[in-house]
């Protein structure tokens, strides 16, 4: 007779110390009843308060020490929480993405790129690239993100850096009639196939109607590297990510800036 139950029971005593410890981290208790749904946030002030309470001001822990931002860090209580406990849609604005970091570094290092230009930062998130463009003399910068919480975070990050809050918009511009942007910035926007497809055809239109310059920052995501857009890219810069960034972005160690030339 074949007996299969042994395996289930025998494994437990041989577990190393590491397992129970990691398990204990799962069990860490969080009181979030107060922020149960988005509807609880009646005003922008509530959102601001939530952002202040759940992020940390970070400067220097990324590729662009020139700017400060309120970001998610290991000190924040949600860092090790179960994702269901987070009350908003995913806080992409609380992360300074490696693709955005490279793009922002590039803007700081190459002031001519944005000086005097009309700039769109699409999927602005924390607003870093938009702020860099503005600090390097862009004549107009729009920080665009479909997440309304991101637009509040962008305003707060501008204030942190003593910048006049940049105009923000939550409209989904992908697929709309191309406006006359001189420069479109895309920090880490090629993480999703559908989004990449939409962006690809829309950007082609922007370039052909207004000769817009399109810059993309990406840390080598599988989705980007396997996308057809690869055929029309020119590498402009390559940055190694600081250790602290690598530690927060499992598996990623460098990030590049590309120009889209359809």
């Amino acid at each position: 007779m074949l007996t299969l139950t042994q395996g289930f029971l025998r494994f437990k005593p041989t577990l190393p110390g590491a397992m129970p410890i990691r398990f204990a981290q799962h069990a860490r208790f969080l009181v979030v009843a107060k922020y149960h749904t988005v509807e609880c946030f009646s005003s922008e002030n509530d959102i601001r308060k939530f952002i202040v309470e759940n992020t940390e001001v970070v400067q220097g822990n990324h590729l662009t020490p020139e700017i400060k931002m309120r970001l998610f860090t290991p000190k924040c209580r949600f860092w090790r929480a179960r994702p269901e406990l987070w009350p908003f849609s995913d806080p992409y604005w609380a992360i300074y993405w490696p693709g955005g970091q490279a793009l922002t570094r590039f803007l700081f290092d190459n002031p001519g790129t944005s000086r005097g230009k009309k700039v769109l930062d699409l999927g602005s998130g924390c607003g870093a690239s938009a702020m860099a463009a503005s600090l390097r003399g862009a004549s107009h910068v729009l920080a665009n993100d479909i997440d309304p919480v991101a637009t509040t975070a962008i305003k707060m990050n501008c204030e942190l850096n003593n910048l006049k809050p940049l105009p923000v918009s939550v409209e989904n511009l992908i697929g709309t009639k191309a406006e006359d942007w001189d420069l479109i910035l895309l920090g880490d926007m090629f993480y999703d196939t559908e989004l990449s497809d939409g962006l690809h055809s829309w950007l082609k239109q922007c370039v052909s109607t207004h000769r817009t310059q399109v810059l993309i920052g990406d840390p080598g995501r599988a989705n980007f590297e396997n996308h057809k857009i690869q055929k029309w890219l020119r590498e402009l810069a390559h940055y190694e990510l600081p250790l602290c960034v690598t530690e927060e972005n499992y598996g990623l160690t460098s990030s590049k800036v590309w120009e889209f030339l359809p």
Binding site: W79, R80, P83
Partner: peptide, 10 residues
């Protein structure tokens, strides 16, 4: 390693 919330989101 432990999958942190930001990494789960990403």
């Amino acid at each position: 390693r432990y999958a942190t919330l930001p990494n789960i989101m990403k």
